[in-house]
Computed example of a mutant assay.
Amino acid sequence: MPEYDARLVLHTGTVTAWDCECPGLCRGKASEEHVPGTRFAFPYRGVYVHSVGTKDHVADANQMVITNADEAYRVSHPVAGGDATLTLAVDAPTLLEVTPLEYRCSRERPALNRSLLRIDPRTQLLAAQLRQRLLRESIDRLEAETQVLHLIRHALGSNASHSSRPGSRNPEKMADQVKMLLSADPWRRWTLATIAEEVSVTPVYLTDAFRRVEGIPLYRYHLQLRLAFGLTVLPHCDDLMALAIDLGFHSHSHFSASFKKTFGHTPSEFKRSVADRSHQTVDHQNFDAKLLDSAGAYVSRSVCDACHSPSDVRDLQTSNAA
């Protein structure tokens, strides 16, 4: 086994996540190491010592280890067994925005003035849930980005934005612009960075302001939008796997689980419920028609009567737009 194994589980323009394992073969302090950007490590197995200068910090599951950009550090494993961590990084502007002033090295440098921070049980739970969902590929990229930022901000003890640049956008107008952007291209694999760039705000301001205006997180709004489109396409779709992939889900099971959690029925159950009204009836007590009507408002006004694939719907939307 190599001395250090880092499995990349998420990488976008805003955040990166690794699932890291170290066998702990070096009991004494290893050679100095550096990282190009500040990283947050959440140990979930084993223990090690993270040394910066003359200070030694015991890193276990009750701590968040902070490795600052271009800051020399050394690692040792006095206890056998090695360690494993969920390690996160965010781009420099976002790091400055989510870091409370009391934890900053300076206003300009994207680094913290400490190497260790005690975390609470809620933080441990958030980290464990995020890691498992990333490994199982049961989380969308937009949601994963949001959860990474939430985890770091929760660990730092503040959900406020600490940007030196005050928000100049009207949040309601920004939210409307985001909604039009998402609806215009529901098939696109959006990231926080691309949406924020389109509406000229930072990813942190985007997530905060959108939730204040709409009452739900941006990733959840986007998920409902995609699932609502699925409601329209499903009755005419023969390939649920292809539809799931086109809608941005990792797999058919991911799509089915999200669909059932939202509407109370699996895609197959919904498809059967509308297949032949002369032989089947919808259980209106279990299947809320009002929910379907409101969800359907998000999708295209025109739907192909004989659609057998998502591409047919896209072609129809293009022709209608023309």
Rank of each mutant, 00 (worst) to 15 (best):
M1A: 05
M1Y: 06
P2C: 07
E3W: 05
Y4A: 10
R7S: 13
L25R: 13
L25E: 14
H34W: 13
G37E: 13
A41V: 01
F42H: 04
F42G: 00
R45S: 06
V52A: 04
V52W: 03
G53V: 03
T54F: 02
K55S: 09
V58G: 03
A59R: 00
Y73T: 00
V79E: 10
V79G: 00
G81D: 04
D83W: 06
T85P: 00
L95T: 10
Y103Q: 03
C105I: 11
E108A: 07
P121G: 07
L126T: 11
D140A: 14
T146Q: 14
T146S: 15
I152F: 01
G157C: 04
S158R: 02
H162D: 09
S163C: 14
S164E: 14
R169F: 10
P171T: 06
D176Y: 14
V178H: 03
W187Y: 14
W187H: 11
W190G: 01
V199M: 04
P203A: 05
Y205I: 09
F210Y: 04
G215W: 06
I216V: 15
Y221L: 09
A228V: 08
M241Y: 10
M241T: 13
I245P: 06
H250M: 03
H252D: 05
H252I: 04
H252S: 07
S253F: 02
A257L: 05
H265I: 08
V282C: 14
Q285P: 00
F287R: 14
F287K: 08
K290F: 13
L291T: 13
L292E: 04
L292M: 12
H308Y: 08
V313K: 07
V313A: 08
D315Q: 12
